[in-house]
Nucleic acid binder design. Structure first.
Length: 649
DNA sequence: GCCGTTTTCGGCCCGACTGTTTTCAGTCG
């Protein structure tokens, strides 16, 4: 994946070590991998940098301390070369001879990597033989018919590059999970309805519930004699913008946004996802744009293997395959095949000797593993846990009994207390936390946040409503809190006396520009000061990122979470929010499990500004599952009575 | 570049599809 970050080596903003953050180091390693691809370097060397980047990004311990203690090379995947690079960067603020690697690669070549069908080898060839260093130059060369005469290229390649460039201009890259799932489940249902398709299922990153989805993988169970007819039926779907390829087992297409409307108009699909994103209010859905989709057609008896294979992740598959090899088995999308029987046979021919599996569960069993839920298949320890029968019982949407961060008309919400409560009761919840914006928040010169007076008056109203429900025997309560702005120095909006009268305080950064202008160390110190304030209960959207929109501010979340863990062990309640808005999904799932391990309770919060916004918790649950959470790890799964007691402590 | 009850070299996951070939390389997932 090509990062959208700028392609220059970061400069240290500090006088003393450590000069860079984990995130900066990880980004450089990832970029080096990409640059090496364009140099046609050893592919395994490239992978070493990719793995190194991933490893550093998910490292739970302090990188600087690890470096000082000389234990960098003890981290799996970090050897002599990469550890020396990291040591120098952290200690001296310099990047060895990487600058020459960066200097010798025009940015245009990196941009060209995004052209579908064009990879690093041919980009290098175009650069070496035709001096092409940008997409504009490449377009011109194709139009002058200068590309087709190169070795290994032809007129078809040249046209494919032009098509790819055109596509790139329209293609929006990865899509947020809610949009990707909407496309994916719609297309899945369309394929499933085709005669001859026995079963169709969405795989890939959408099934793993990644926060963004690149393309769609549909696995379809089709008898060999029906493959031709099914292929024709797929290609006849009117919402296909382009057919990228069609072979005996795979159809690769680009879908238009019109597929969504068509499907919703037919009213054929009403999965939980549609409700979760606000039912038929899909007007916000990007109406232009496209998404790539592949349909893999396989005979029914190999369906489970293909589904598992294309669910991924790549890293999970590599581990699984290694496990198979250790048992003398060959694992691929067609089967789990004893090596001694398969011999030189390939693909479906070899699969005749495969062990049987009618579902994924049986594949995992053959390898001595418990079935791994797709959300966990990221090679983050799930295979080891599956081996030792210690996978978590993941939280489900129905486990939730409430949430704590929601807005009303007192700040920028559009629904009243009563309306929000009604919607929560419709979801069978026992509690709903109200947390309107604090007084300092403005948009332009208009004050959005609530004055202390109005806020406390809201508390009175909530008490009245709660008394009424209680008297009527209704097991439901509103919980009174506020979303207090975190000021640049880490202190909280409102006077302490005001905050003390609240059941809970969601502490959130909204002055993002200030925080983005500072480095990781300053931001981390400020955030730790925030959580040490006795009135702070929950950190809201901890980095402020907007998916596909803007990066969050730099902060060492591991350090913040560790401090929260200490405070929890001292008997205080310090919780981390998973902001469930599909635009945020912040806390990132990669930190969720670490928080759990540090004893920090998580709270899934829809940050709802209207009644349908409450349904966003569904996305928060997906992220909690990716973070290995069980109901006991979540404040949302406490009963109304328990949460009320906990917050009034 | 990383790794090693097979430690200092020789492996590193594997198959489909496409377009260019006439036995294969590049790209993708």
């Amino acid at each position: 994946m090509v990062s959208i970050k700028s392609w220059v080596l970061p400069k240290s903003r500090r006088d003393e070590a450590p000069h860079f953050s984990k995130a900066q180091i990880a980004t450089v390693l990832e970029q080096v991998a990409t640059l090496l691809k364009l140099k046609d370097a050893n592919p395994f060397r490239i992978r070493a940098y990719e793995n190194g980047s991933r490893t550093i990004a998910s490292l739970e311990t302090d990188l600087w301390e690890l470096n000082l203690s000389g234990k960098l090379t003890e981290v799996k995947g970090i050897g002599k070369g990469i550890s020396a690079l990291i040591s120098e960067a952290l200690g001296e603020g310099t990047w060895g001879d990487l600058q020459s690697l960066y200097d010798s690669t025009p940015e245009g070549m990196i941009e060209m990597l995004a052209i579908p069908g064009l990879g690093p080898k041919r980009i290098k060839q175009l650069h070496d033989e035709l001096n092409i260093d940008s997409i504009a130059e490449l377009t011109a060369a194709c139009n002058e018919d200068a590309v087709s005469c190169l070795d290994g290229f032809g007129s078809k390649s040249q046209q494919k590059i032009l098509d790819g460039i055109d596509l790139l201009a329209r293609f929006q890259g990865r899509r947020r999970l809610n949009v990707g799932l909407l496309y994916g489940e719609t297309f899945e249902a369309m394929v499933a309805r085709i005669d001859g398709v026995e079963h169709a299922q969405l795989a890939g990153s959408a099934r793993r519930r990644r926060e963004t989805v690149g393309d769609l993988d549909i696995v379809a169970s089709v008898k060999p004699e029906n493959v031709e007819a099914v292929t024709e039926a797929i290609l006849a779907i009117p919402d296909i913008a382009e057919v990228k390829g069609a072979g005996d087992s795979k159809v690769s297409v680009i879908l238009e946004a019109s597929i969504l409307e068509r499907n919703l108009d037919l009213g054929t699909l009403d999965g939980g996802v549609f409700h979760a994103i606000g039912g038929d209010d899909y007007s916000q859905m990007e109406s232009s744009g496209t998404i790539e989709a592949q349909v893999r057609m396989v005979p029914p008896h190999v369906f489970a293997f293909t589904l598992a294979y294309f669910t991924g992740s790549k890293e999970h598959n590599i581990k699984m395959r290694q496990l198979a090899i250790d048992k003398g088995l060959r694992l691929n999308e067609f089967g789990l095949i004893p090596e001694d029987k398969a011999g030189d046979l390939k693909g479906l021919d070899a699969a005749k000797y495969s062990l049987n599996a009618t579902n994924e569960d049986e594949i995992y069993q053959h390898l001595g593993l418990d079935w791994v839920p797709p959300e966990l298949r990221e090679d983050m320890g799930e295979i080891e846990a599956a081996k030792s029968k210690s996978l978590p019982r993941l939280v489900m949407p129905t486990d939730l009994k409430g949430s704590l961060h929601n807005h009303t008309t007192l700040s920028d919400g559009v629904a009243t207390l009563e309306q929000m409560a009604g919607a929560a009761m419709d979801m069978d919840w026992e509690f709903l936390g109200i947390a309107d914006h604090s007084q300092i928040l403005n948009i332009g010169d208009r004050q959005i946040g609530a004055n202390a007076e109005d806020l406390l008056e809201q508390g009175e109203k909530i008490r009245e409503l709660n008394d009424n429900w209680s008297d009527g025997g209704k097991n439901f309560r509103l919980l009174h809190g506020a979303e207090c702005d975190i000021l640049p120095d880490g202190s909280l909006d409102y006077e302490p006396e005001t905050r003390q009268q609240l059941g809970h305080v969601i502490a959130s950064v909204h002055q993002l520009s200030t925080w983005k202008a500072r480095d990781e160390i300053e931001n981390t110190e400020a955030l730790i000061k925030t959580i040490e304030d006795p009135t702070c209960t929950i950190i809201g959207h901890p980095t402020g990122r907007i998916l596909q929109g803007r990066d969050g501010f730099d902060v060492d979340l591991h350090a913040v979470i560790r401090r929260m863990g200490e405070l929890n062990s001292e008997g205080e309640l310090k919780s981390m929010e998973i902001n469930a808005s599909p635009y945020r999904l912040d806390l990132d799932w990669r930190f969720v499990r670490f928080a759990r391990d540090q004893g920090v309770p998580i709270c899934i919060n829809p940050d709802a500004h209207d009644t349908t916004g409450l349904r966003d918790v569904w996305f928060g649950v997906q992220i909690a599952r990716k973070g290995w959470l069980e109901p006991k790890d979540l404040l949302n799964c406490y009963s109304g009575e328990e949460i009320e007691a906990l917050l009034s402590r």
